[in-house]
């Protein structure tokens, strides 16, 4: 098993001088959860990020993912895109539950899914990612209290995990291709990865 399906916690924690607060930056395929007064930051192209928070315990977390590119539709309940997306969401939720969050109180703010990439086999990966995250939260009965999805711009998302406040900066002019290249690499990793965990029988 390589990195994408593992328990990825972002190591990139730094002090954000603009906001005067400790911040964690997450990349595609990663997630981060905290109960401290912290900022979680990510930059999204066609990927989506769910910012989840339990308002009582003030435990919050953010993920950053996209669905693997396959011909399978999202309607396929056990298809690869649905399984991977569900896994990405479940990893984040489970980590929050382990820290003491209560599932029934969790609220979501969702971002990303821009139409920013070219040359993908699926015509609009951003829209598919957005559709998945909306549908997942509906099935799980997790209310979406804010969203900024689709459109054509990459976004920088700042999530203040304790208060739930989110700032979104739409990046109307991007000076280099870093965001797009990162997402392409991530997409390629997903395409060539065995989408299943280990199976072990004890007896």
């Amino acid at each position: 098993m390589t990195s994408v399906f593992e328990n990825v916690l972002s190591p990139a924690v730094y002090f954000d001088r603009n906001f005067g607060i400790e911040a964690a930056k997450i990349l595609p395929g990663e997630y981060y959860t905290t109960s401290r007064e912290m900022l979680i930051v990510t930059v999204l192209g066609s990927c989506v990020a769910a910012c989840l928070r339990d308002p009582v315990t003030r435990i919050g977390g953010m993920n950053h993912f996209m669905l693997p590119e396959t011909d399978e539709s999202l309607e396929a309940i056990t298809g690869l895109p649905t399984r991977y997306g569900t896994f990405a969401m479940e990893m984040l939720i489970n980590q929050m539950l382990k820290m003491g969050a209560q599932r029934s109180r969790i609220e979501a703010k969702i971002f990303g899914g821009g139409k920013v990439l070219h040359g993908f086999t699926v015509s609009d990966v951003g829209a598919r990612n957005a559709e998945f995250v909306r549908h997942f939260l509906e099935v799980e009965n997790i209310p979406v209290v804010a969203e900024d999805l689709l459109d054509i711009y990459p976004r920088k998302v700042y999530f203040f995990a304790q208060t739930g406040r989110v700032l979104v900066k739409k990046l109307r002019s991007v000076h280099n291709n870093t965001i797009i290249e990162r997402e392409r690499d991530y997409s390629a990793r997903l395409r060539y990865q065995e989408p299943a965990g280990d199976v072990e029988l004890f007896s």
Partner: peptide, 29 residues
């Protein structure tokens, strides 16, 4: 489960689990 660590698996074995499947699961498996 999403829990893939050996110590969790050992606990599972100790309480009487028959086996351990790590998510994301493959329906075929």
């Amino acid at each position: 489960t999403t829990e893939a660590g050996d110590s969790m698996k050992q606990q599972g074995r100790a309480v009487g689990a028959t086996g351990w499947l790590v998510k994301p699961f493959d329906p075929q498996k």
